[in-house]
């Protein structure tokens, strides 16, 4: 089995988000970065489990600069076989997907995994774009994936339920909670990761068609109004008359 896992680097979930004074750029001073949790905990771990069981390789792919290498090495420590970094600034989803698809199209992967979304841009777009470029089926928000020969059975989270789907390889899938359990890399994995193949590839020319031009922080709450625990009628009155939500 040949699997490709798309990973991105995001600010740690505890990060306090701020921007440069003109609001044009993310302020990364004092921010620690992690692998996007959906990519790491679900997509990558499930991909590793599949090749551990069925044999094969897991290749990591990331579009970004050399400052992403540490994140990519962590993926190798968790269990990926090798890694590719497309050396370009990842400014828009379609640009990123184009780079991944260009690399993947000659490699005949059985499955391309990504996380259901990244926790920075929350776009949830790259997987669908890669699938379209590769002309392959796409199963989004999969919380379960089993494979038997060339046939995969998946559960896809939908509003208020799940769909049980069957699809033949090759296909693209985005992974949601439930697909696997987080793995902490062990010392041996970390040592091995240092010598695993790691390729840096030049990008193909492609425009950025939708880019963030300005960032703002949401309005702070003006302060909580405390209601006595003995007067829930008052809370109901406020929610009805003042907040108008019931």
């Amino acid at each position: 089995m040949k699997i490709l896992v798309c990973i991105s680097k995001t600010p740690d979930t505890t990060s306090k988000i701020s921007f440069t004074a003109d609001g044009a750029k993310f302020n990364d001073a004092g921010i620690s970065f992690i692998m996007n949790p959906y990519d790491e905990w679900y997509a990558l771990v499930r991909a590793c489990e599949l090749v551990e069981k069925n044999g094969g390789t897991v290749t990591l792919i990331n579009v970004g600069g050399a400052d992403n290498d540490q994140t990519i090495r962590k993926g190798l420590a968790i269990g990926a076989t090798d890694a590719v970094r497309i050396d370009a600034e990842p400014k828009s989803a379609l640009f990123i997907a184009k780079q991944i698809a260009e690399y993947a199209k000659s490699q005949n992967y059985d499955i391309v995994f990504c996380g259901k979304e990244s926790i920075d841009y929350n776009g949830s777009e790259v997987g669908a774009m890669v699938a379209e470029y590769l002309d392959q089926p796409f199963v989004s928000y999969a919380s379960k994936l089993d494979i038997n020969g060339n046939t995969a059975t998946l559960e896809r989270d939908i509003e208020g339920g799940v769909e049980i789907l069957e699809v033949q390889t090759p296909f693209v899938v985005s992974a949601a909670k439930g697909m696997a359990e987080q793995r902490i890399p062990n010392m041996m994995g970390i040592m091995k990761a240092k010598s695993k193949p790691f390729q840096v590839v030049a990008p193909v020319e492609f425009p950025d068609l939708a880019v963030p031009v300005k960032f703002t922080l949401p309005k702070e709450k003006t302060g909580v109004k405390l209601v006595s625990p003995d007067d829930m009628d008052e809370l109901v009155r406020l929610l009805h008359e003042e907040a108008k939500v019931i």
Binding site: L94, A97, S124, A128, E132, F138, R156, L209, A210
Partner: peptide
């Protein structure tokens, strides 16, 4: 879940900029 799965595909097909959500 439907719209999110379509947006990226349409962007690739129509070579169009897309914004999700």
């Amino acid at each position: 879940s439907t719209g999110k799965s379509l947006l990226g595909r349409l962007a690739a097909r129509l070579k169009a900029g897309s914004v999700a959500g």
